[in-house]
Design a protein around this nucleic acid. Sequence first.
DNA 1: TCTGGGGTCCTAGGACCC
DNA 2: TCTGGGGTCCTAGGACCC
Length: 438
Amino acid sequence: MTQPLVALADANSFFASCERVFDPLLADKPVVVLSNNDGCVVARSAEAKRLGIREGAPWFTIREKALRQGVTARSSNYELYASLSARMMSVMNRFMPGQEIYSIDECFLSPTTDVQETIDTATTMRNAVLTGVGIPVSVGIAPTKTLAKVANHWAKNHPSSGGVSLWSDIEAKYGDTALAQIPVGDIWGVGRRLTKKLQAMGIVTALDLQHQNPALMRHRFSVTLERTILELNGVPCIKGDASANDGKRKTEILCSRMFSTPITDQFEMEQALSVYAQKACRRLRRQSSLCSHVSVFCATSPFGPENSYDSFHATTTLRDPSDDPLVITKAACNAIRGNLDPHARYVRAGVLLLDLQDTKNFSPLPGFEATRDIHNLGEVIDKANSRFGTSHVGIGYGGIRGRGRNNEDSGASWMMRREMLSNRCTTRWDEMAVAHAD
DNA sequence: TCTGGGGTCCTAGGACCC
DNA sequence: TCTGGGGTCCTAGGACCC
């Protein structure tokens, strides 16, 4: 009997690879991409990894040395990454059915049970993405998602694989030593805390974990770990919702940011929150949902002196489910009024929309539609901003264009710092790549 | 000076019901 | 002395993912 297969296609150092697409001089050079506010390293090219730069390293602690070593650092350019991701996904979708987009840079696919055909298709697909989009991807093929992750990792670390690895080949060739080489913490679903507990029990490698009794481990830890163990043994038990990609609605929407400089007064905090509330609200409308609860939080730095950490959190229930930016922004701002510590230096805040429901499933009784966006204000704002560029129209002062890059942000002191931003070549006319011929 | 953002799933425990 | 038990729903928080 042939077992169904699952393929995991995952871009190599995705953000760093995106930076190279329109800047060929970066090929073969160490490249790192930084988080918002140019805070810490979120992506590293293979060359940067080889220099020992760790994921999550605060940029200011490694900056000097990295620059000396010839590392190029870029601010994260999510607009560019999202656009290249969409291209990459659509190319791959042509080669194999059942695409389930798992994150910005990876997707699961359902190949045929014919092993050789699957390997050939995966190889063709990989080349098509490389030549068509310019992004290198690796493909792992296995009977379960967890093993496909392992095989994908293998493909990345073994150049001789040509970027495509089949789990049964690895197993046939290396036997138990393949899993014995992998630290248990590298397995999908095993995070930092779990790793510590497992290590204390002498479960150190993926092979150790594979040999555990699933039922016992479920009792001791959780059903999630039981599934991971079964999957390592070739029993598929992590469900996918492949066909649901398009219709998949978020169950909560969060917009939060660190500030580049701390906020200490309520007026400024309200401006920040109104920007985040409007961004969240826009995403809410884009998926045709209404929310019933608006949650707001702000916090001081967790890296400050001992016991100085302070945070505030409040949730407001709307009278009726709403997608009206006025209603939601007001709810967010009201939540903090009179509740901030006047001496605190807040470095982070966010707006969380909860209890979402499909707009068309909500029909208020006649006369009770007051909190719906009856003027279509949200739609008007969305249209204006997508026609003229973001931050041209909004509620409050915080989100309106001003002194920032391309006049797109307000220039408020707390606004995000992105000093090494590349061009958004695929989404802005005025930032398109230019080719020179000599 | 300077440490990201956005999500999902699972569990434990309390409230409530009959 | 002895003070039900089982089910469901909700929420907060932990853990994980990229």
